[in-house]
C-alpha cells in the first residue's frame, strides 16, 4: 500500500511538472516553434554593421573622423550574453 501511495505521488508530481508545458507533437510543432523563434521585428539590430573588434572600429573611426559607439558586454551582445 505504501509503495502504491508513493507511486501515485510520483506520478502526480511528474504530471504537475509536465503539465506546465504542452506535450510537443507534430500538430503543435509549428505554433510552438514560432512562439520560441526570434521574430523579424526583434532583429533590427542586425542591420547595423557592428565591427567585431574594437581595433577594426578604431581604424574606421580614425579614417572617417567619427565617434565610436562602443557596445561593451560580457559575451558578444549579438549572441550569448
Amino acid at each position: 500500500m505504501r509503495k502504491l501511495g508513493l507511486l501515485v505521488f510520483l506520478l502526480a508530481a511528474l504530471t504537475l511538472a509536465r503539465g506546465q508545458v504542452e506535450q510537443l507533437t507534430p500538430a503543435n510543432f509549428a505554433r510552438l516553434r514560432d512562439q520560441v523563434n526570434v521574430k523579424p521585428a526583434e532583429l533590427g539590430w542586425q542591420r547595423v554593421p557592428w565591427h567585431d573588434s574594437f581595433f577594426a572600429g578604431l581604424v574606421e573611426a580614425q579614417a572617417k573622423d567619427k565617434p565610436i559607439f562602443y557596445w561593451l558586454y560580457f559575451g558578444d551582445p549579438r549572441g550569448g550574453c
Binding site: P49, H51, F69
Partner: peptide, 11 residues
C-alpha cells in the same frame, strides 16, 4: 548609429 562607427566588445 549611422553617425557613429558601431563596435561590439567583450571585457
Amino acid at each position: 548609429l549611422e553617425r557613429f562607427v558601431p563596435v561590439v566588445d567583450n571585457p
